[in-house]
Design a protein around this nucleic acid. Structure first.
Lengths: 335, 335
DNA sequence: CTGAAAGCGCTAACAT
DNA sequence: ATGTTAGCGCTTTCAG
């Protein structure tokens, strides 16, 4: 049933080791012997046994991806996983998933099973990092002061991009609708807005709310005025803001954050900061692969892009400062 | 660095095989020797090497889960994966993920890497099933006439549940808003509705549309009348229907399908057919584990549950038939 | 350029 | 109850 290197060797009239060489370092084998071996390999449908290779080499060609289960699933996480997966497939690595409610992993989940670990949902001073990094290369999606490979999305930059875009439209009274600043990435977004707006001479104003549509719908009320433009810390919030304002017959430039498909389905469609989760997955996969090969840890911050859609496009090219122009915009619709 | 069974044996003053036995079949080892061994194990922090065990046993204690990447991510898939993952962790199995745009897998992705495969996104006469099943135990999330383990959600039953619920409210003119019937599960939902409604003497009417909010908003127009009740083939559609009708000031019983969190966030909250994806994941994991142990394939259909919320609760207990009562319901809101 | 020996870490089968 | 032998399938020495 299972053909081993031995059968191939016999069929090709050589020794097993020559077969191994023909497969791993073809240059060390004379072309004609190699041809015989390749013939035997295809005829017998020989495939090297990864487990045996693993035992020999001490490598599994597997990486463990640790994911925390969230009740409200984040579609971006799926993009991320795809980026990781694609990169691994290109490198003949496999992806082992460790899915737990709290993201916990033990060293035993890794040693002997995987050559490295990718950690997601990193918290400040995340205890898992040091624990694992003593035994196996670690790469994290997030940030840490420890000497492990880390890839993160530059949220502050994204917020700056959004703010500067609104500034470029001539808006001077730009407010932000944010989530509570417990999560690191939210702190960065808030900081990015504050820095960019302050540099432009603005006086930052922030309302806080939940990251979903409701948060947007309600948070905006707390400003006590209609600002000239709004930067929302999530697309969900932005849709809420959009809806609320539209129901009041108000239309002002709005920028969301995430770059979800959701933003293509609203009326007007939503300008947003597109977070490069797929790319982050790729980079993280490369980072851990490098780490496995003994290279030094890398520290990568990926900058998001601004995707301009209708919610701000309307004002582009105008030189005058924004006005809270009232118009008969259709009810914003999720589609 | 890496402690082997040999070191433990030396430290405990026994032979390696005795250590192995103490770990795998403790009853075959005298308690005092066992104690010595256990002491050595903990002191040296010995962990058996899974790769070596794998080579010896021919088993990897890994199962491959094949998932097709969809652009619009389905949160239910995540629930499913969690069900699989939890069950595997309880059985000391690991979960290898194969994520591809089209769901393709080759035999080489499996042999030597995993003891079995779980296939998702099954199509009619899915060619992957037979190809893989010749080499390794296969369990599918879906249905097939082949002799492989299969777990599926009884969509027809769910549709029946929804229809009968609406019937029980006294409604006689119940329509369905469905997706196009290419996917098997949609065929089942449509069939379930038709059967249940026909049995009750009704005359089935179906409108088709995309599975999202837009599909619901538009599909309902095609009826040319306001029915007494609506069964929607997805929660997304149901929200669209809800919104459309609410904007007309109409409120009738509506049942969705999926049981997403979305349905808890609308006004009114949405009665829905809760699809047991987590349980399906568990069952599928059990099925493949059984298959690996040589047991016969199983064929399981899991019945969804009806979750009653405000979108139909309003009418419960009424004995009269439904009327398309008009009221001043608040605009249905996604939150 | 090719082969023989040896062993990665673990555990059946067969002793004792 | 414990140890010896041997081998899972592959590849790194070291010889030829």
């Amino acid at each position: 049933m299972k053909v081993t290197i031995r059968e191939v060797a016999i069929k090709a009239g050589v020794s097993p080791i020559t077969v191994s060489r023909a497969l791993n370092s073809p240059d060390l084998v004379r072309p004609d012997t190699r041809a015989k071996i390749e013939k035997a390999v295809t005829e017998l449908r020989y495939r090297p046994n990864p487990v045996a290779q693993g035992l020999r080499s001490g490598k599994t060609r597997v990486v463990l991806l640790v994911v925390k289960h969230k009740r409200t699933y984040d579609p971006l996480l799926f993009e991320f996983a795809l980026g990781v997966s694609d990169t691994f497939q290109q490198n003949n690595y496999s992806l082992l998933i460790h899915l737990t409610p709290d993201g916990s992993v033990s060293v035993d989940d890794v040693t002997g099973r995987a050559d490295g670990v990718i950690l997601t949902d990193i918290e400040e001073n995340d205890p898992r990092i040091e624990k694992l990094a003593r035994h196996v290369p670690v790469a994290i999606f997030g940030e840490s002061t420890l000497a492990v490979s880390q890839v993160d999305i530059d949220d502050a930059w994204g917020a700056r991009l959004a703010t500067e875009h609104l500034l470029s439209l001539g808006c001077q009274d730009i407010v932000m609708v944010a989530g509570d600043g417990r999560a690191l990435y939210m702190k960065h977004r808030i900081r990015g807005y504050i820095e960019a707006f302050t540099e432009a001479g603005g006086n930052p104003t922030i309302a806080y709310g939940s990251l979903d549509l409701i948060g947007g719908e309600t948070a905006i009320r707390s400003f006590g005025r209609i600002p000239e433009a709004i930067f929302c810390a999530s697309d969900g919030m932005a849709v809420g803001v959009l809806r609320n304002l539209t129901s009041l017959g108000i239309r002002i430039p709005i920028v969301g954050c995430d770059g979800l498909q959701l933003g293509e389905m609203t009326t007007p469609t939503l300008t947003s900061i597109k977070l490069p989760f797929y790319e982050a997955g790729q980079k993280l996969a490369e980072a851990i692969l490098d780490g496995i090969q003994g290279k030094e840890p890398v520290n990568i911050r990926i900058r998001p892009d601004l995707v301009i859609r209708e919610s701000t496009h309307y004002w582009e090219g105008r030189t005058s400062r924004c006005d809270s122009s009232r118009n008969e915009a259709a009810s914003p619709t999720l589609t």
